[in-house]
């Protein structure tokens, strides 16, 4: 005959087993239905992701309504850069072919911050073959201007070398004479 103590311990063991069992049941209930159909993820997630509204357009999606910027942009050194990187997403601006809100346009010092996100020499991983970088304030010192100058005061933001090449052409012509 088992003592009362032994009975209690058997009860403890049974309750541990029962609690783990209930735990496993609850776990089974909480696992989403489609989990594991294709792999260790929810199969429904594929459909849900496919249903996501596309928020970004392409550069071409902007050209129709902004012919002036399109022209400059396509001719300049930034032609490979996405308009939306600098301005924000298409879906915040246009819905079913109509403008619904303005996109923010950066001003003043914000423009310098924007340019340096890509063109800063301090970002050591930038390869000079892919992108030219400048060190601040060295770049402004080399041009002999005040350090308060923003990038767009010399560079056209959409075609960064536009003015500079034009200026070189003029000075070049002058030098020939």
């Amino acid at each position: 005959m088992l003592s009362k103590h032994a009975m209690r311990i058997i009860l403890v063991v049974i309750s541990v087993v029962a609690v783990s069992g209930v735990g496993l049941l609850v776990k089974a209930q909480l696992i989403p239905k489609s989990f594991g159909l294709y792999g260790a993820y929810r199969a429904d997630a594929i459909d849900e992701e496919a249903q996501r509204v596309v928020r970004h357009g392409t550069n071409a999606s902007c050209f129709g309504c902004h012919p002036y910027e399109a022209k400059t942009h396509l001719k300049g050194d930034h032609k490979t850069i996405s308009c939306e990187f600098c301005h924000g997403t298409y879906s915040d601006h246009v819905k079913s072919g109509k403008k619904i809100a303005d996109l923010p346009v950066k001003k003043g010092a914000e423009i310098t911050t924007l340019c340096l996100r890509c063109h800063n020499t301090e970002i050591k991983a930038r390869s000079t073959i892919v992108i030219k970088t400048v060190a601040m304030p060295d770049h402004l010192e080399q041009q002999k201007v005040k350090l308060t100058h923003n990038c767009n005061q010399c560079h056209n933001v959409h075609a960064p070398l536009k003015y500079i090449n034009e200026a070189k052409k003029i000075t070049g012509l002058m030098e020939e004479h």
């Binding site: 009362k4 209690r8 311990i9 009860l11 403890v12």
Partner: peptide, 8 residues
């Protein structure tokens, strides 16, 4: 004490 006061 698992409701057991048995200290035998």
């Amino acid at each position: 004490t698992f409701d057991s006061d048995d200290l035998s």
